[in-house]
C-alpha cells in the first residue's frame, strides 16, 4: 500500500520534511518503515513501537488512531500531529 505521511508542528521539525511517501498497510508497519527512512524522527517521536504521548496519528483528516494494527489503505494520508492543541 502506498500512503502519504504528513508531519505537522514538532513532528515536522523532527522529521525534517513535511511529507513522505511510504509503503505500509497498517499503522505499525508505517512506524516501522519510518524508523528506517527517518531515524531521527523515530527516535524523537516513537517509543516502543507507538507514538509518544505528545503526538497523535490521524487518517485522512478524519479518524484518530492509536492501534498499531489499524489497517491503512492505498492512498491514505497519515497525519502526525501534536497531541496538545491548546491555543
Amino acid at each position: 500500500m502506498s500512503i502519504t505521511v504528513e508531519f505537522f508542528g514538532i513532528a515536522r521539525q523532527r522529521a525534517g520534511v513535511a511529507t513522505i511517501e511510504i509503503e505500509a498497510d497498517s499503522l505499525g508497519a508505517a512506524f516501522d518503515e519510518l524508523a528506517g527512512r527517518l531515524p531521527q524522527w523515530s527516535t524523537a517521536c516513537i517509543d516502543d513501537g507507538h507514538l509518544k504521548s505528545t503526538f497523535l496519528a490521524n487518517v485522512n483528516s478524519r479518524t484518530f488512531i492509536t492501534n498499531r494494527s489499524h489497517r491503512l489503505n492505498e492512498g491514505d494520508h497519515l497525519l502526525i500531529l501534536a497531541a496538545d492543541v491548546g491555543g
Binding site: G9, N58, V85, G87
Partner: peptide, 9 residues
C-alpha cells in the same frame, strides 16, 4: 503551530 494542523483537519 496549530494553524497548519487545524487547516489540514
Amino acid at each position: 503551530s496549530n494553524l497548519l494542523t487545524f487547516n489540514r483537519l
